[in-house]
Amino acid sequence: MSSTDEPTPSPAELPSSLGYRLPAEWEPHEATWIAWPRNKEDWPGKFGPIRWVYAEIVRYLSRSERVRILVGSGKAERRAADALEKSGVDPDRVEFVRHRTDRGWLRDSGPMFVVRDRSHGAEGEPPPVALVDWKFNAWAKYDNWTRDNRLPRFVADRLGMTRWAPRTTIEQESRRVVLEGGAVDVNGLGTLITTEECLLSHEQERNPGLDRAGYEQLLRDYLGASKVIWLGRGIVGDDTHGHVDDIARFVDETTVVACVEENEGDPNHGPLRENLERLREATDQDHRPLRVVELPMPAPVVFDGQRIPASYANFYVANSVVLVPTFNDPKDRVALGILADLFPGRVVVGIHAVELVWGLGTLHCLTRDQPKGPEPSAG
């Protein structure tokens, strides 16, 4: 394993220069990582049923691929194993990994695995899979993040992977760059979607002083994103301040689903309509227009007087299954039907998420895909 924390890599040593890119979620996975729920503050008053929701998630994921589950102690592992056994999960399909976290939203705190397609298996050649370790600071909102921030380094050491920890210079000061996985979505060919609200707003500002051009350069250098599509705002109730994985997602190399709110009196109506128009006007890395498919929003989900960020766009694509959050809403079946049509080679399954979303995230937020990477080419 090599680490390139210091010094900043030369242009020739950057992931993109070595042929690495952030793969699309539908590309083959080696495993899915999750962290078994432990922080009761994430689901105040609703923590009890959460482990059973996780068990149901693991039950479906483990049929598709290996599931690596972070637990903080032997006691936590035994409790998780008991819940999985009672839920009918094959223990040979899961792997417990001891690492204590602050929270469980691995989409944001976990590593971004990158793949290198030009793999010939030659000695000294860069490996087919590596990872990028962006700094995590709990969305510039919460104080409990130092354990989560150490997770990508831990994973790199455990898997023996090359790791980059991006830095940038702002006002003559070298700084680690903050970026969460839920802030970006890609088609695997070089096009990336993000939002201005998350990356460019001065509220919950991750990287003060870093502008649009600076972000685009970093996304190109470390994730292979040659084209960045900027949407506007996220949805009401999202404590991340505008993550894209609640509003728009790639479902294949040229198709994006975009959330729409039909009720003109709903505060999500205007921002989602603007995002839809931006996507309809956008082109991909090869200057081709995108196919944009509308995805409905569920009726507002409110608990204890708080609007919660319920969205069907927070689905997760595994090797043979697509898990979609559902909310006891008539639009559940509409959303499931749309996504089933868009993923004909996978089983699309709804996961009841009314309790889960009280943690202000659902299925995509809690998962991190580890790609398999390309097979070495012959010759």
Rank of each mutant, 00 (worst) to 15 (best):
M1G: 15
S10K: 15
S16L: 13
Y20L: 06
A24W: 10
W26V: 12
E27I: 09
E30Q: 15
A31E: 06
T32W: 15
F47L: 08
I57H: 02
R59M: 04
S62P: 07
I69F: 00
E77P: 02
E77Y: 05
R78P: 08
D82P: 05
A83Q: 03
L84P: 03
D90R: 12
D90K: 12
D92H: 12
V94R: 14
E95P: 10
V97K: 07
R107A: 03
R116D: 09
G121W: 05
G124I: 00
P127D: 14
V129S: 00
A130V: 04
N137K: 04
A138S: 12
A140N: 15
N144P: 04
W145T: 07
W145E: 09
W145K: 02
M161K: 09
R163G: 08
R167E: 05
T168D: 08
Q172P: 03
E173T: 14
L179C: 05
G182L: 00
A183H: 00
T194P: 01
T195C: 05
E196H: 08
C198H: 08
E205Y: 06
R206C: 10
N207P: 07
P208Q: 03
G209W: 12
D211L: 14
L219Y: 10
A225D: 06
I229D: 01
G234K: 05
H243P: 05
V244G: 02
D246Q: 11
D246H: 10
A248E: 02
A248P: 09
A248R: 00
R249D: 04
T255G: 06
V257S: 05
D266H: 11
P267L: 13
N268F: 03
G270Q: 15
R273W: 06
D286I: 13
R288Q: 15
V292M: 00
E294S: 09
P296V: 08
P296W: 06
P300A: 01
V302S: 07
F303P: 00
F303R: 00
N314E: 02
V322K: 01
V324Q: 10
V324G: 07
T326Q: 08
N328Y: 14
K331Y: 12
G337Q: 09
G337C: 10
R346W: 13
H352M: 11
V354N: 14
V357N: 09
H364K: 01
T367I: 02
Q370L: 07
P371R: 01
P376K: 08
G379A: 08
